Amino acid sequence: MSQEQSDHSSATTGELISKLTTEMKTLVRDEMRLAQAEVTGRAKKAGIGAGFIGVGGLLALYGVGVLLAAIILALALVMDAWLAALIVAVVLLVIAGIAALLGKSRVQEAGPPVPTGTMDSVKADVDAVRHARDH
């Protein structure tokens, strides 16, 4: 029999429970540190990815601006430049208005951002506990 096995066989139940509790606390702390390190690493990667997405979005916005300028310049070949710019602006504003109206209707369809299903479930749980307590 090894020394550790001998120590366990001679230890009282209280000592074993105390040792188990201490080891569980250590294990939980170590697991929490590991989880924190894992989440931190993932968050860092996600942050870098979000930065690249932001740069891509900004460059796409500039690209759209240049494309709109090219459309205006192309139209300016067959009409006055101010008229070409006005036509492009009106088309953009009409598209923006349609998008805003579609967005507004979707938001109204969604209703208030209240978790009604979860609230109903919690109320049912509270009622069940009250009912069990009363009996």
Score class of each variant (00 low, 15 high):
Ala37Cys: 11
Val64Lys: 10
Ala84Thr: 01
Gln3Val: 10
Val122Lys: 11
Ala132Gln: 13
Lys19Val: 01
Leu73Arg: 12
Arg33Ala: 14
Leu67Arg: 01
Gln3Pro: 07
Ile48Gln: 11
Arg130Cys: 12
His135Arg: 15
Lys19Ile: 04
Ile87Ser: 02
Ala11Gly: 02
Leu86Glu: 01
Ser10Val: 09
Leu101Ser: 06
Ala89Gly: 07
Arg106Trp: 00
Arg130Ile: 14
Gly63Thr: 01
Gly103Asp: 00
Arg133His: 15
Ala50Pro: 00
Gln108Gly: 05
Lys44Gln: 14
Ala128Trp: 06
Ala69Lys: 13
Asp30Asn: 14
Lys25His: 14
Gly65Cys: 01
Ala89Phe: 07
Ala60Cys: 05
Leu61Cys: 04
Ala35Phe: 12
Thr116Trp: 11
Leu75Ser: 00
Val28Trp: 06
Gly117Phe: 09
Leu92Ile: 07
Ala81Leu: 07
Ser6His: 12
Arg42Met: 14
Leu73Glu: 06
Ala50Gly: 06
Leu58Tyr: 09
Leu92Met: 10
Gly117Pro: 03
Gly14Pro: 00
Gly41Glu: 12
Arg42His: 15
Ala43His: 11
Leu73Tyr: 07
Gly51Cys: 02
Leu27Asn: 11
Leu77Cys: 05
Val107Leu: 08
Val91Lys: 01
Gly65Thr: 02
Gln36Leu: 15
Ala76Ile: 00
Leu102His: 03
Gly117Ala: 13
Val88Gln: 03
Val66Glu: 01
His135Pro: 06
Gly41Thr: 08
Leu16Asn: 08
Ile87Leu: 05
Ala46Thr: 09
Ser18Val: 01
Ala50Met: 11
Val28Asp: 09
Val66Arg: 04
Glu38Ala: 13
Ile95Gln: 04
Glu23Trp: 07
Arg133Glu: 08
Val94Arg: 01
Ala99Tyr: 03
Glu38Cys: 06
Thr116Glu: 11
Gln108Leu: 15
Glu31Lys: 13
Glu31His: 12
Val107Met: 06
Val55His: 02
Ser105Asn: 08
Leu77Arg: 07
Phe52Gln: 04
Val28Arg: 10
Ala46Asp: 06
Thr12Phe: 02
Val88Leu: 01
